[in-house]
Write a protein that binds this DNA or RNA. Sequence first.
RNA 1: GGAGAAUUAGCUCAGCUGGUUCAGAGCAUCUGCCUUACAAGCAGAGGGUCACUGGUUCGAAUCCAGUAUUCUCCACCA
Length: 878
Amino acid sequence: MSIAKTYNPKEAEEKWYSYWKANGFFRSTPDEREPYTIVMPPPNVTGVLHMGHMLNNTIQDVLIRRARMQGKNACWVPGTDHASIATEAKVVAMLKEQGIDKKSLSREDFLKHAWEWKEKYGGIILKQLEKLGASCDWDRTRFTMDPELYQSVIRVFVDLYNKGLIYRGYRMVNWDPEAKTNISDEEVIYKEKNGKLYHLKYQVEGTDKYIVVATTRPETIFGDTAVCINPNDERYTWLKGKQVIVPIVGRKVNIIEDEYVDLEFGTGCLKVTPAHDVNDYELGKKHDLEFVDIFTDEAKLNDNGLHYAGMDRFKVRKEIEKELEEKGLLEKVENYTNNVGTSERTGAVIEPKISNQWFLKMEDLAKPALDNVMDDTIKFHPTKFKNSYRNWMENVTDWNISRQLWWGHQIPAYFYGDGNDDFVVAQTAEEALSLAQQKSGNAGLTLADLRQDEDVLDTWFSAWLWPISVFNGINEPENEEINYYYPTQDLVTAPDIIFFWVARMIVSGYEFRGQLPFENVYFTGIVRDKLGRKMSKSLGNSPDPIDLMNEYGADATRMGMLLTAPAGNDLPFDVELCVQGRNFANKIWNAFRLVKGWEITDAPASESDKISASWFEARFNQALAEIEENFKHYRLSDALMTTYKLVWDDFCAWYLELVKPAYGSPIASETLDTVTSFFQRVLKLVHPFMPFLTEELWHDELFGAKEEKDCIIVAEFPKVKAFEEQVIKDFAVAQQIISEVRNIRNSKGISPKVALPLAINQQSDIDLGQYIAIITKIANLESVTFVTEKVAGATSFLAGKDECYVLLENNVDVDAERERIEKELDYLKGFLVSVDKKLSNERFVQNAKPEIVENEKSKKADAETKIKILQESLTALG
RNA sequence: GGAGAAUUAGCUCAGCUGGUUCAGAGCAUCUGCCUUACAAGCAGAGGGUCACUGGUUCGAAUCCAGUAUUCUCCACCA
C-alpha cells in the first residue's frame, strides 16, 4: 500500500460534498435542540463568486460547522436577491444585443425575458458556493421574488401604509438617467471629478450692468428661476429688488436674498435652479419659485432647452460654452474639482429631479433599532461600527422606496382617478377595488378602472425582511419555523452595507417581530490586493476564487482567506496565504501517512509515551481553551492560528516525534490508540476550517471502522477540559534542553547524527528524571548524567535554573564559552537591577498590588540563583 | 466641512481593565541539513526608540493632550 506523498484535494472535495448532501447533514428542521441559525446575505441572483463572497461564506461555514459539531441544530439559509436595478440593467443590455428595445416591450413581456434570464443564469453563484464546501441547507434556498417572499413584501407595504408610515410625495430624488430610475441617497456614490467652473454674466434688467454667477453646470440655466445673494453682502446691496436676465434663455428672474449663500464662494451670486439641484430645491420652496424641469428621463434637454432640446446634457455643456463665449456672456472658465454624485449601479452621473415617489418614514422605526445596538442587545464585531451606525440612525431620513423599474415587487397602490390622491393601497386588486369604491363613493368602479402603480420597490425593501421572510414569518407570524429559528444567531456581512441592509433588518425585526433579527453581526473586511487596492473587475486585480480552489484546493483557499481576516479589518490578499494553507493541509496529510505506516506490537506503552501523552493532553486542552476564547470574541483568524500551531508544532513537531518508534520498530498498540485518539480530536478542531481533508482522513480505517453516517461533519466538537498547567511548564524545561542542544549542534556544525553526552546539575525541584528518555531520543544524546558540580571544559547552558553541560571532544572553546556566559550574566544583572529598583522603591511596594510585589520578589530570587550559577561557571572556566 | 479608527519586525497583525526584561505570532529573510511522514519539509538564527512631543504615575506600547501620517463613514457650496 502506498499513500500519495501529498494531499490531493480534488477527489476528496467532490466525493465528500456529495456525500454530505446525500446524507442530509446540511438539512435542518425544528427539533428539541438549541437552534443555531445564519441567514446568508443573498448574493445578486445573476452574480458570480468573487473574493468577497469567498471570504464571507467561508466565515459563515466555519461558524455553522462548528455549531453543528457542538450539537446545535445548525441551519444556514442560502438564497439570492433579485437585485432589481442591477438585474434589470443586465436584462436590458442582453435584449439590446438581440436588437430588442425595452421600450418596445410591454411590462409583461419584459418580465418574461427577465425570468428566463434568471432561470438561466440565476443561482450560478450558489453552485459555486458548493465548491468551497458551504454547508447550507439547500432545501431552504430562497429568492427574494419567490411567491412567499413576494407576498411578504406586499403585506409589509400595505401594513406600513395603513400605519401611516408610507406616503407618496412629490420630492426631489436622485435620478439615474442610464437606468431611468431614481435611487436612494445611499446608492449615490460621490466621486471627485475634474470639471470647470463657468462664470456667467447675467444682465441686470433695465441697466447695462452685469452680475457674474459661477456654476459648474451652465446647461442648467434653462431651469434658472432666480438669482440669490446673501442679504448681508454689501457688494450687492444695489441689486436688491431688481431682476436679472438669464443668458440665452432671456428669462427675467428675481434677485432673492438668503443667508444660505456663501459670501466667500465664487462671486457671491448663486443661480437658482429649483428643479435640478437639491439646495436650490429648498430655496425654491422657501421663496416660492417656479420649478422648471429641463431634462428628459435620459437627461437630455427637453423643450425648455430651446434649440438644445433633444441634446445630451454633457454635449449641451460644451455647446453652450461656445454660444456664451460668442455672445460675450462668459466671463471666464476655471478648472475646478468637485464631487459629483454617481449611481452605485450604473455609474451614471446622478441628475437631481423632482417626481412622485414613495417614502417610508424612518424616525420612529429607527428608535428601537438604535437602542438595541447601542446597549449591545445586538452585538457588533468589531464594536467600532456602532459609531457609524449611531450616526446614521440618529440622522436617518425617510427612505425612498420606489424605483421606476419593472423587475421587482410592484407597488400595491391602485389608482382609480387622475388626482394625486386618487389611489388606494391593498394586497390584491380585488381588495383595492372595494376600497376604491368606498373612497371615491363610486360603487360602479370595476377592476378595469384600476391602474396599479407602475413602480417597483427598492431591492432593499425585500432584503430588509430576509431573516423573517425566509421562514415565512411575515405571512404566518406564528408558524413553527419562525418561532424556532428566529431570532437568528450570527450575521456575517461586509461593512459597506451596514445602512442599506443591516440597519434596516434590525428595524424590520423590531417592527414586525418585536425583537432582534440576529444576536451578533460579524463585519468582514474588504478584500484588497497587495497594494491595498480594492479588488475589482475593472482593475483586473482580483483572482477568481474558483481558480484558486482549483490550484490550491478549497481547504487551502479557505484557510488563506481566514489567515489574514480579523473582523472589520481590510484583508490584503496574497496567494502566498493559499500556499500556506496548502502546506498546512499537506502537513496534516503527512502526519497521517506517518502514523498509518507504523507496525504494531502488543508490548505495553513505555513510560515516556505516557509522559508525552499526558503533556499533549494538557497542551491540547490549553489550546482548545484559547480557541474557545477566540471564537467567543469572533477572532476567527486567531482561532485558526492557534489551531495551526497546535497541529504543526505540538502535535506534529513534538508529540509525533516523541512517540515515533525507531526505524523498523513497531509501536505499542496502546500508544497507537492514544495517538489516533489525539489525531481524531485534532482533526475535529481543524474541521470547521478545512472540512474536506479532515473528512477524508476521518474515514480511514486507521481511525476505526465507520458507520455510514459517522462523519466528522457531525462528530462532537471537543469540549474544554481542565488541564494541569504545571505539566506544560515542566515539560517546557525538557523542550528547552532539547532546543539548546540543537542550538549547540548548529553553531558548532555538529551533525544531528552524532550522539552527544549531557550532564545536568539540577537546582530546580522539577522531576527531570522522567524526561531523560525523551531528551535522549529527541536531542540524540549518548548519555544523560546528573552531576552536582561544575563540569570543566564543557559547553554549558541554563535551562530554567538547571545548568546543563555538553562535553565536546576537540571542541572546547573557552573564550566563546566565557563570552556567552558573560553576555547572559550582563542580561541577568540588568534584570536584577531593574527588579531591585522597584522593590527598593517604597512607593512601589506600597501602591502596587500585593501579588505583583510578590512576583517581583520571586523574580529577584530567581535572578540571583541564576547569577550565582553562572558566576561559578565563569570561575570554573578559569 | 463633521465623525470615527489606526500608526508595534521587511509584510499582515496580537498585545483585554497600566505591572514578569513586554516587546510577541505567522509569513518572509538568513545559516545548516534531501534525517526512512512531509524540501509543500527539518533544525537553528537575525530582525522593532512600540509614529513624534509632552503629561499623569512608583511604573506607560497600554491612560491623557498636542503634532504628523494613513484609512473609513457621513455631508456636500454653486
